[in-house]
Amino acid sequence: MRFMLTAEQRRFAATLDELLSRADVPAAARAWADGDRGPGLAIWAALARVGVTSLAEHAEPADLVVACEELGRHPVPGPLAESLAAVPALLGGLPSSRARELLAHISSGTAIATAAFPPQVPLALDADIAQVVILSENNKIFLAQPVGTFDSMDPSRKLFAVRQTEVLAADADAVAAGVRHGTLASAALLLGAGRGLLDAAVRHARTREQFGRPVGAFQAVKHALADVLIGIEFARPLLYAAAVAVGAGQATAARDISAARVACADAARLAAAVALQVHGAIGYTRECDVSLWLAKVRALSAVWGSQAEHRAVVLAALTEPKTGPWS
């Protein structure tokens, strides 16, 4: 057993961090929210050039979660869980040449994908900029088109009701693979958002002064931030373990994904609450970067299964005779 990232995976994370730090992601996320997708799409193109869009097809799930944590941390706008994980995993399980062709476009970055998987994911995120829109219902898979738009609490998420235009396949395994990867990616994005929120709160607490000292010198602030770090550091191993289980096709994969998703979303929610409180009034403004993660954490933890559903999956797996908790 060697349960740690490889040097290559750490380098990949560092490369993405560097690329995204230079790219002014906050400005791109704000422009995206205002309807100007140009800067955000330029970031997607840059990500495609370093191989992020082909991870689901060509790399291990562990590589995918490493990347998604960085994308959530920065926070990149667009249908990440859908285009980088769920749709490629779904298409990869289909034998048809049409599916292969679509997958090739998504992997190379010439197409962005989105999807609706009702009931957990009833609306397709950013379907207006996606070249591939998937609707998966009752184990049937369709190509679809947007028919109505909804605003999200997170202004950088535009949601679309979709209608089927073409039957692609009927394949329960492919749908399951899509949901598995989408959920796993959403957990990684949430963990990354938590990390981004913690980084911002730490920066603020070190520099903002009140009563003649940095607010981070006060124990009430220190201890709140410490709890955020604890939440993140103990959610990450669950995320990695889920990626390992998915990669190895283990029977515990569903349980492990749900456990990771519960912990990552809880860690991100705590990070959001603490980051807002540590920032004070400035954190409650659109001007402050904290706003870019705050609503996203809430929005993301509502799709790809609720916390209650994922906890139920864990308990069901633990009480089922075949897969005990010690496997």
Binding site: M1, R2, F3, M4, E233, F234, A235, P237, L238, Y240, A241, A259, V262, A263, Q307, A308, R311, A312, V314, L315, L318, P325
Partner: peptide, 23 residues
């Protein structure tokens, strides 16, 4: 039931975190 699930998830998280420390 949610607290029962959380207790197991946290115990598993501590185990996995320790595997990471050992590595």
């Amino acid at each position: 039931s949610e607290r029962v699930a959380d207790a197991w998830i946290a115990a598993r998280a501590y185990q996995l975190h320790t595997f990471g420390t050992v590595a």
